Amino acid sequence: MVNLIRITEPTDIRLQKLLSLYEEAFPEEERRNAKQLKRLISEKPEMYFNAIETNGVLSGLFIYWDMRDFYYLEHLAVFTPMRNLKIGQQVLDYIAEHLDGMRLLEVEPTTDEMTTRRVNYYRRNGYEILDKTYMQPSYDEDIEVGNLWIMGNRKSGRLQEFIERIKQVVYRENR
């Protein structure tokens, strides 16, 4: 059974292990530095940094933002020894049940087997590609890192407004 435990203090004993996973799982341009992340954990109530525990064992991390009109799913990672235990699937099932409304996430375009598998994984979990023109901003500078796709659990006439809010709140305001 998967349990999400919100980390609200940068001194939480689980955080150091989770930061190591975060740095291992995401390339530098797709993540914040540890100092930024610790500051956001303390100062930004709209950001949810969650430890994932499976049967009482620390198994991963899940970061999302409550943007009031929608949720932005920023990072999901599972420790290597815990992979293939359907932990990510259980997290997606949990949020489908508990985060009512629109949920958006970024995904790399399908260019190889791994990126194709990832997009298909989200499709199997009720997400669809909503925008293929999205340019991800940098976490540190006013530059665009690269093209990603936006996937979501439903269509919205407000998608471009939501994308601009992600860029503003997640990337620009919280450096």
Rank of each mutant, 00 (worst) to 15 (best):
M1I: 15
V2C: 12
N3D: 13
N3L: 13
N3M: 14
I7K: 07
E9A: 12
P10N: 12
T11V: 10
I13G: 15
I13W: 13
R14Q: 05
R14V: 03
L15K: 02
L15H: 03
K17C: 00
L18T: 02
L19E: 06
L21T: 01
E24T: 05
F26D: 00
P27M: 00
E30F: 09
R31V: 01
R32L: 09
N33P: 14
N33H: 08
A34S: 12
Q36F: 06
Q36R: 06
K38Q: 09
R39K: 13
R39C: 13
L40D: 09
S42H: 04
S42I: 00
P45I: 12
E46P: 01
E46H: 10
N50E: 05
N50A: 07
A51M: 15
E53G: 03
T54K: 15
G56K: 15
V57K: 14
L58K: 09
S59N: 14
G60D: 12
L61N: 01
I63N: 07
Y64M: 04
D66P: 00
R68S: 05
D69Y: 02
F70R: 10
F70H: 09
Y71S: 01
L73M: 09
L73A: 00
L73E: 05
E74S: 11
H75M: 09
H75G: 03
A77I: 12
A77N: 07
V78K: 10
V78W: 13
F79V: 08
M82H: 10
R83F: 03
K86T: 08
I87L: 12
Q89E: 15
Q90L: 07
V91T: 10
V91D: 13
L92R: 04
D93G: 10
Y94S: 11
A96G: 14
E97R: 14
H98C: 03
D100I: 00
M102I: 02
M102S: 12
R103S: 05
L105Q: 04
L105R: 05
E106G: 03
E108S: 11
E108V: 14
P109L: 10
P109K: 08
P109V: 11
D112A: 13
E113G: 05
M114E: 15
T116C: 15
R117T: 07
R118D: 07
Y121M: 04
Y122S: 01
Y122V: 03
R123G: 00
R124M: 09
R124E: 10
Y127L: 05
E128F: 03
I129K: 06
I129V: 14
K132R: 08
Y134C: 04
Q136V: 02
P137D: 06
D140P: 15
E141M: 03
E141S: 05
I143N: 12
N147L: 07
W149K: 00
W149C: 04
I150Y: 01
I150L: 01
I150D: 01
M151E: 02
G152H: 04
N153V: 01
K155Q: 06
S156W: 00
E161P: 06
F162K: 02
F162D: 07
R165N: 11
I166G: 01
Q168I: 00
Q168V: 00
V169G: 01
V170W: 01
Y171R: 06
Y171K: 08
Y171L: 12
R172Q: 09
E173K: 10
N174L: 05
